[in-house]
Nucleic acid binder design. Sequence first.
RNA 1: UGGGGCGUCGUCUAACGGUAGGACACAGGAUUUUGGAUCCUGACGUGGAGGUUCGAGUCCUCCCGCCCCAGCCA
Length: 575
Amino acid sequence: MPNVKDASAGKPRPRNFIEAAIEEDLSTGRFDGVHTRFPPEPNGYLHIGHAKAFLIDFETAEKYGGKYNLRFDDTNPIAEEEEFVDSIQADIRWLGYDWEDRLFFASDYFEQLHEWAVKLIKDGKAYVCDLSADQVREFRGTLTESGTESPYRNRPVEENLELFERMRKGEFSDGAKTLRAKIDMAHPNMNMRDPVMYRILHASHHRTGDKWCVYPTYDWTHGQSDSIERVTHSLCSIEFEDHRPLYEWYISQLGIFPSRQIEFARFNVSYTVLSKRRLKELVQAGHVKGWDDPRMPTLSGMRRRGYTPEAVRDFLGRTGVSKSMSVADFSLLEHCLRDDLNRRAARVMAVLRPLKLVIDNYPEDKTEELEAVNNPEDKSAGTRKLPFSRELYIEQDDFREDPPAKFFRLAPGREVRLKHAYFIRCESLVRDEENGEVTELHCSYDPDTRGGEAPDGRKVKGTLHWLSAPHAVRAEVRLYDHLFLKPDPDDVEEGKDWTANLNPNSLEVLTDCLVEPGLAGAAPGSRYQFLRRGYFCVDPDSTEDKPVFNRTVGLRDSWARIQKGGESCGQVQRP
RNA sequence: UGGGGCGUCGUCUAACGGUAGGACACAGGAUUUUGGAUCCUGACGUGGAGGUUCGAGUCCUCCCGCCCCAGCCA
């Protein structure tokens, strides 16, 4: 299994409340092993919140030497599609997990579930109800008032059996009847007020086709599926806590393997939203380009953005497992990303907003090759040759005609180092006659500083990245920032909704960037560190002659912080 | 004003009834051929009030606050 481990791997992880419960079960003999499951509904793409959930399911099983299943909870044919069955598996595999031969579908248990429903009917524990959806709601009562029993509640067993059979055959229209468990309409827990077990749905299911006209509800399916698979600990999110009595009721009425449901808090991340409904809205309203838009918290979006499975797992592992409301800091994710990428990403140079620079005392027709290390954190990554010539490009913001305090970069009369190359001094500049903007810098270089070191021992405060004009390759770079302006997207003024917090600048596309010649034709998914800028990943939109890069995460930028003054930051990334 | 759950630095989390610790974030410094990385330092917390105890984040009582539930969604 995924043994790659994060920095925190060595330290003994304290036991969380789930592990404490499991150890209790093991010591009392309630269970003699641990078997878990991840039960996604194939109705959308997985996001980081789902990842947190299956990480808990899978790693908990592994910790106790047990197995885990992947089971699709496909009980609602109207919402579910084969496409998601595939994407969900791909996303889980991407994070490094393998359920081996334990891939299941709740729909595999439809026949068994039906038999059990018949048993409950025969036991007088379930009945066919003719109330409409609206009536069922009215009869259910409210949070503070108990409900009213359905007039169909005491139908004879034989009649229930016959009606249920006819429901199955499709003799009734959608919604005309339901099969309900007979529990207690006055129960303080709404879930126990005669919950619906089956609804009539003349819909085609992605796996069972048109075989069924009745489909089981979540409550009637989940616990029994766990039981069939002999899942010991059915870990789920906290909103199912008040479903537990029902989960246990069904299992005990049936007298089958008693899986235990344990709930944990849902996972949230600052500056984003994690509900399928909202994610869908972002896609449909065109706020993002699709489910795999690199700004999306979906696993497919994060993958495209260049996030590594190791960093994502590290992030998820560093955040807690508890029952209290939790919002993980996006900055922790960024930290995990930088930590991982710093060790493995090859360094290259890329100029995002080019400013031409001519070295007047460098021979016009000369080109030389300079050696550059690929990764100072990993000597085994080796070195590469970089072409250097008289005409170069540097970053626009690496030059200031009138440098502010603490600005260490290039300015008139100043000397800086070109990374891996030479010391250069700015001698003069050329302006655009119309608007007065600086369009070109003229510099001199010191041939004795080849490689970046001065024999006389003099120092420079700044080191810039650069590209040889005739050798550079054109590229498109997409810069991403938080999707929302506030840590909590719901933090809006009266009358406005979460979309008011959408960050209008979450994507900035730069089309005239330049990168090292070695990056032409880089394979989609390849990751690099653009020196002094951040970590970037090749996007699938890349073409033979024009690579496209996504900024995964910027480098920590203490200069940006100085410029911003005391104002706290972390959210604003500018190259 | 029904039921269920949850409250420890800004965030996520530790702490047999015995010095409230760590990580991220933040602030300062050292170092540096990336204003990166690395290293050092600092500031910041037990929702509140009582009670038990030599001693309470931990035990008891009351209060306050937040989240979930009235789908034939999951």
